[in-house]
Write a protein that binds this DNA or RNA. Structure first.
Lengths: 253, 253
DNA sequence: CAGTGGTCTAGACCACACC
DNA sequence: GTGTGGTCTAGACCACTGG
């Protein structure tokens, strides 16, 4: 899928070599001069492509040295945040899920506000229990705007990612805002997650939007804090990366 | 503090106009042609400076349109994460702090592991209660490696940011890893923060390092979840931005 | 249409890394 | 030293936005 411009094609080609393993982690990339030769472009174009990869965190390195492939591409943060299944698999565990409810009803005030709807306007609510190695780790409450939510009835949410299913139907979510906090487990959540009532839960709420800025999903995910945490790697002048992580078992709380 | 290269100076100048308000939010920047004229550089240099600002999230906008100043500069994520005081002030509140303990003792196993020390090796422990509008919102336990921690005795931690004090003494922290989860409040924490024992706390643990990669601080911050949350803005292909936020009062838990 | 940013080229000099 | 990336210039054409 060449992306039009020359430097984008060049970046795609190099990215492909990295993710395919043709360029191993820690290995230096070809020098700019060689890339100019190989692709027949000017050096400026090569540098623009390398700049793209650097921004994506795929390569690092400085003056005088050839850039090297970064340790762990750590996946696309965006995807990591959106797909529970992908996260669990990358952690070396087995994902599972059980859809408890898939219903059309009037929007509750919180979701309505996030989705820019009036309370009571029809929406699609999904309640899913997410499993990691057959153990309950997260309770997911999602509210989709009606036209998008109706698509959910077309495919089995237990089969895989809802986002993947939507994407296959032309719904591309490109932006999301997440808020992380902690709450005491209400009785229902405690029962479903198998934790004590009133015990701490790690909560992530999100509003997901399309390219035109229209919010289409409001989500409220509640994690067992002993089974999931969020991690941010933070470097001055560089950018943030955030991933979900599975804590080591036996970690002191 | 001009940063050597021309494009960096240009970026500094434009950044200054934005943060000072000379260029208001939503206002378009001067066109590239005008900047070339004004600064007497080539267009490539101007574009490199604009690229820097775009990467920092200060400006946005596309082809054919002049770039505009972004709605929320949302501060430097790195600084936001490191400085409690700066965060509180940016939220429009009044920061405060009370140092409960500043002690030299043997490292506990968790901190020792993070700092790559042997348990029991001498370190400097700091226990601070952080206030927002005179209300307790966060309990901060920090462990510094000995040579860095000893600098803390040179200045008043209640005066302002520890990081600022260290920076003034030549200790520049450039990277950090943060883990966010939720825990039940132990008795001591509950008392200091004024929350029920066993109630949920939002915890952020971090390991902060110098440019050479040496970890120098291990921190364990515990927030009242009704007074602080973490927010991530997430755009496909773009980068993540994470900030602490003060929730609206009266928000449903 | 004119103005603007997006892309690309060709060549130059410098600073740093490694031998 | 040689090779490398970092910086800068001057000029060109295209694609998009706006009046």
């Amino acid at each position: 899928m060449p992306s039009g411009s020359l430097h984008a094609k060049l970046a795609d080609a190099l990215r492909e070599r990295i993710v395919s393993g043709a360029l191993a982690v820690g290995e230096p990339l070809p020098s700019e001069a060689r890339l100019v030769e190989e692709f027949g472009t000017s050096r400026g174009t090569v540098r623009q492509a390398l700049s793209t990869l650097r921004n994506e965190g795929l390569i690092e390195g400085g003056q005088g040295r050839r850039p090297i492939v970064r340790r762990r591409p750590m996946g696309q943060p965006f995807e990591t945040f959106l797909s529970f299944s992908a996260w669990v698999e990358r952690s070396g565990h087995r994902p599972g899920q059980r859809t408890i409810e898939l219903a059309r009803r009037g929007a509750d005030p919180v979701a309505a506000d996030a989705l820019r709807l009036e309370p009571g306007e029809p929406v699609i609510d999904v309640l899913r229990l997410r499993l990691l190695d057959d153990e309950s780790v997260m309770l997911e409450r999602s509210t989709f705007v009606l036209d998008i939510g109706l698509l959910l009835f077309d495919f089995d949410p237990d089969a895989g990612s809802i986002y993947a299913g939507l994407l296959a139907r032309g719904v591309e979510i490109v932006a999301a805002t997440h808020t992380i906090d902690a709450i005491a487990a209400p009785a229902e959540d405690a029962r479903l997650l198998g934790v004590p009532k009133g015990g701490p839960l790690l909560r992530e709420r999100r509003t997901a939007s399309l390219a035109d800025g229209r919010p289409v999903e409001y989500g409220d995910d509640r994690y067992r804090p002993d089974r999931a945490t969020f991690t941010i790697a933070n470097e001055r002048a560089h950018h943030l990366a955030l991933v979900r992580t599975v804590p080591e078992t036996g970690e002191a709380l």
